[in-house]
Structure formats: C-alpha cells, structure tokens
C-alpha cells in the first residue's frame, strides 16, 4: 500500500469511528456544563440507535438515499424524549445524578430490545438497513494534491459535520450570552438564580440537548457502523464519549479533539495490520488505550478542579 492510501484509510476509519463519539461527547458537555452529571450517555445512544434504525427500515422506500439523514434526526428526537427521564429525575425531583444516569443505562437496552421484539416478530435484533451512510468524496476539495486524497476522498461526511458542530458548540458556550448563562448555572446556580436566570430551564435545556446529541451519536453508530440494531449495537461508546468529554476538560473543542483521538484508537486495530510499525502491536492495547489515557489524564493533569463547580449538585432554591 502506498503512503497516501494508508493515510487515507487511517483518516477515513478514524472519522467513521469518531463521529458518534463527537456528537455524544458534545451532548455530555451540555448536560454537565448546566450542572447535571450524565453517566447515562450510553443509554441515550442506545435509544437513538434504536429509533433511527426502526425509522430507516420503515421509511427507506419512501425517502431513498435521504433516509439515513432523516433517521439521524429521528434518533435525536428519541434521545431527547428519553433524556426527559434524567431531567425530570435530577432537576425536578432532586434524584442523585449518578443513580438517575444508571437508570437510563439499565432502562435503555431493556426498553429498546423489548420494542425490537414487539416490532420484529420476537427477534432481538432488527434486519440490516439498506440505506446506510456510505462514504463521501468532497467535490472540489478532493482535487487538492495529496491532502485531497488523504482527507477528502471516500471519507465520512457526518464526521466533518460533527467537527463543525463541535466548533459551533464552543461558540455557543464561550461567545453567546445563552451559553454563558448555561455555564453559570453549572458553576454557581445560586448566583445565577439571583441574577434572574431560570436555573431549572437551563438545566432542562442542558440535559435535553445532551439527549438530542446522544441520540444522534447512537444513530450515527447504527447508520454507519453496525447497520442494524441489537443489544450490542452500542457497547461502551457512550462511556467512551463520557471519557472524551472529560479528557477534553468539559470544553466542546477539547471533547471533539478527544473523540477524534479515541476514534483513531478504535480504528487502529482495524488498519494496524497495514502499518508496518503497528502490525506487531496486539489490538488489546488499542482497545484499552482510550480508557487508560482518560484515567492518566485525570490523574496527572486535572485532579478534580476542572469540572463545572456545581456539577452533580442539586440546586434547591432558598437553601
């Protein structure tokens, strides 16, 4: 294989695996920046993957090649509705955030597989979708010598969109007043409340957006990688996204970068065989790398002082 082809494969597989993580990790930043810890990202992805797959299978003949893209939106809506559980529990009923998040992770696979069996004659997995997200070649950019071939040929369009969304999220949090308010709710809800910011509203917004994005993440996973839905469609990607969010210091750009890096780690076992230096490394090290790196980063660089100050605390008015 030539260097260009190797690099093209490395980048495109990295992008394919990173895209679901980027969306979900960005979702995580919304929830946690508004002060609600979200260990339920995995569950939100599962519901998104389920919703999108069912939609895709049902409407593939109606919408043709547009189906996967509409499915993303449907998956996002499923995730949003599901995340309402977390929002109601944590914001309105003062539940412990970790317990509520755990409930999402227990509930999602149970509910999704239950419904799958209801819809598909008792089978625990859906049929394979016909309209999936194929690869994409950018019309003009791919003509650029070398870079065009490496980055913009046969690549994952949704990953590029994900990166752009990541930049937009950063802009939202650090350049708009709405974003500033949301951050203030996660840092010091009482001060925000005194300044007239509706704490409950922003917390709901944060959690629901995380459900929306987590749903997209799950949908991307189902529409571009697994191509059907079963209990094992989402196996740890939600937790890996959580890791990416932390590794990225609760910053959308950091989370995007970390998710790309984890995407690379996930793609290395697949493409490593073609790369002379890596072909001797056992795949297990690539598999554990994202998780191990997250722990190391937390220990060495971060400590506990980087999360939003009031992350995980319930705000009780007048206390």
């Amino acid at each position: 294989m030539s260097l260009t082809t190797i690099l093209m494969t490395v980048f495109s597989t990295t992008f394919v695996y990173a895209a679901p993580l980027i969306f979900t990790a960005l979702g995580g930043t919304f929830s946690e920046r508004s002060g609600v810890v979200n260990v339920g990202l995995e569950g939100m992805m599962i519901i998104g993957a389920f919703g999108s797959t069912v939609f895709n299978l049902t409407f593939a003949s109606t919408f043709g090649s547009l189906t996967p893209w509409i499915s993303l939106f449907i998956g996002a809506l499923f995730g949003l509705v599901f995340s309402l559980l977390h929002a109601v529990a944590t914001v309105t009923f003062r539940a412990d955030h970790i317990i509520s998040g755990t409930v999402l992770n227990l509930m999602a696979p149970a509910l999704a597989v239950f419904l799958t069996r209801v819809l598909y004659e008792g089978k625990g997995q859906t049929p394979v979708i016909n309209q999936s997200m194929g690869n994409f070649t950018f019309p003009l950019l791919s003509k650029i010598p070398f870079i065009g071939k490496v980055l913009f040929t046969h690549t994952s369009l949704i990953a590029f969109i994900a990166i752009i969304v990541g930049i937009l999220c950063w802009y939202f949090f650090f350049r708009t007043s709405l974003g500033l308010r949301m951050r203030s709710v996660g840092e010091n809800p009482m001060a925000a409340d005194i300044l007239g910011i509706n704490v409950v509203k922003y917390k709901y917004m944060g959690v629901l957006i995380s459900g929306f994005m987590g749903g997209i993440g799950g949908a991307v996973m189902a529409q571009s990688i697994t191509l059907n839905f079963s209990a094992s469609t989402i196996s740890g990607q939600g937790f890996m996204s959580l890791a990416a969010m932390i590794f990225g210091k609760w910053n959308p750009l950091g989370a995007t970068g970390a998710a790309l890096f984890f995407g690379l780690a996930q793609s290395l076992p697949i493409i490593g065989v073609y790369i002379p230096l890596l072909s001797h490394v056992n795949t297990v090290w690539f598999q554990i790398a994202p998780y191990a790196i997250t722990i190391i980063v937390l220990v060495i660089f971060l400590g506990k002082a980087v999360a939003p100050a009031a992350d995980g605390e319930n705000y009780i008015k007048g206390k």
């Binding site: 937790f239 890791a243 932390i246 997250t294 506990k304």
Partner: peptide, 14 residues
C-alpha cells in the same frame, strides 16, 4: 489525587 471514582471505575471496567 482526588480523581472521581465514578469515572475511574467506569474506565477500569472497560
């Protein structure tokens, strides 16, 4: 190090 046990135990699981 004050590292959140929630995160480390999740990572250690995988």
């Amino acid at each position: 190090f004050g590292t959140s046990e929630v995160i480390t135990t999740i990572m250690l699981n995988y």
